Structure formats: C-alpha cells, structure tokens
Amino acid sequence: MTGRQTALWIINAALLISVAALTVLGGVQLLIKGRPAPVALADQPDLRQAVTEAAATNTARILTYSADTIEQDIAAGLAVTTGDFAEYYKNFTETAVIPAAKQKNVKTTATVPHAGVISIDNPDTATVLVFVNQVVSSTDNPQPNQQGSSARVGIHKVDGQWRIASFDPQ
C-alpha cells in the first residue's frame, strides 16, 4: 500500500467512525428527549383544587368573627395557621382585634368568591391569590358595610392539613 492509499483508508475509517458515533448520539438524544415530561405540580387538578379550597376556607376563617363569640372565632382562626404567621395572628388578635371587637361590638363575615394558584412549590407548599369580600358592622356603623380586597396567601400542609403560613394583603 502506498502512502496515498493509507491516507485515504484512514480518512474513510475516520468518517465511518464519526457517522456511527453521531448515529448513536442521535439515538440516545431521541430516547432521552422523546419521553413525555412529568406533569408539573401546578397542572395537577386535584392538587390545584385542594390548595385553592384550603386557602379560601382558611382565609374566611381567620377574617370572620363576632364580638359575641370572639374567643372561639379567633381560636378557630388560629387552628388553621402555622409557623411565624400563627404567632403573628395570635399576638395581633389578642392585642388589637379582640379588644376592638368587644368595645365596638364588631361583627365581620368574610367570604372568598374567587381564588387562584400562583405557584405550587412542592406537594406541601403553595401560594394562592384570594379575593375577599367582607361585611362589617359595629356600634359606630350598625349598617353592614361591604368591602372587597385581595391577599396573597402562602399555605403549608402540616399533619395532613393545609394551614396559612403567610398572609399578604395586595
């Protein structure tokens, strides 16, 4: 074999090896990228429904109270909170809400007509935007007054129950 034939043989072998390597690489990529993507947590309808219902129900619970039953109402609200927010809620209601409610005979009823998931970080942590309607009356304003607002509610699953971990009015 001459030098020229040897060079051509080496070039042909290199091209053949390159084509084979690219074919194998393409096949591997097809296998890896051809698999369906896992369903994102926020796209799971049961989880979305659970977090929106929990955020709506618990928001109504922490914002609804009456002077006649204030201690029970606040205890019910505290039962659906967790972490730093539970401590804040307890302190705020003891120092501001309970005294004002008793002094001015305040009654407030909250409902959440709409709620939507902002994010679901993992199966036990989510953030929900809630739209709140509150009807408030007191001795100063005996005629019920309706107010609307919204809040960003962070919820965490604790012992199998969704609880409010943060509450940020918008």
Rank of each mutant, 00 (worst) to 15 (best):
T111C: 03
K33D: 14
T109C: 01
G116V: 10
V28I: 15
Q44V: 12
K102H: 02
T6K: 15
F167I: 06
A126R: 03
T111K: 09
R4M: 09
T23N: 08
A126H: 03
D168C: 00
Q161R: 11
T125A: 14
K104A: 12
G26K: 05
S119Y: 04
N145Y: 06
V106G: 00
N58E: 08
N145T: 14
V80K: 03
A14H: 03
Q134T: 15
D124W: 00
P144R: 10
N12G: 14
L78Y: 13
T69S: 14
A67H: 13
S150R: 12
P113F: 08
H114G: 00
S166L: 04
D46I: 07
W162A: 02
V130D: 01
L15Y: 07
T81K: 03
S119I: 06
Q5P: 00
T81I: 05
V128P: 01
A75I: 06
R152Y: 01
Q49M: 10
A42Y: 04
A165W: 00
A50G: 05
V136Q: 11
A126P: 05
H114R: 13
G27I: 08
A115T: 09
S150G: 11
Q72P: 00
V106S: 00
P142A: 09
T59D: 03
L78C: 00
Q103M: 07
A100M: 09
I10W: 13
S119D: 15
D46Q: 14
G3A: 13
D159P: 04
T95S: 15
K107I: 11
I118W: 01
Q146E: 12
K157I: 06
V158I: 15
A21N: 07
E71G: 06
Y88H: 13
D84Q: 13
Y65K: 00
A37T: 12
L78W: 07
Y88F: 15
T82M: 02
F85C: 05
A86F: 04
R4I: 11
A56R: 00
T82F: 03
E71A: 12
A126I: 07
Q5Y: 05
D140V: 08
I32N: 10
L47F: 09
T139D: 15
L63Y: 03
L30V: 10
A126D: 08
L78S: 11
I74G: 00
R163G: 02
V130M: 03
D68Y: 02
Q44L: 08
L15T: 11
T109H: 10
D140E: 14
I17P: 04
D43A: 14
D84C: 01
Y65S: 02
A75H: 08
L47P: 04
A100E: 11
V117Q: 08
A37Y: 11
P99M: 05
A54E: 02
A55V: 04
V51W: 01
I164T: 07
L47Q: 09
P113Q: 10
V130A: 05
G160T: 09
A56H: 01
A76V: 04
G3D: 12
T109D: 11
Q146D: 05
G3C: 03
S166W: 04
F167R: 03
T6S: 09
V97R: 01
A126W: 02
V19R: 03
K104M: 09
T82K: 01
T93F: 02
E71M: 04
S150K: 07
A37M: 13
V135G: 01
A60G: 15
P36Y: 08
Q72I: 06
A151D: 04
D121V: 11
Q29C: 05
L41S: 07
G160H: 10
I118T: 09
W9L: 14
R48I: 08
A165Q: 11
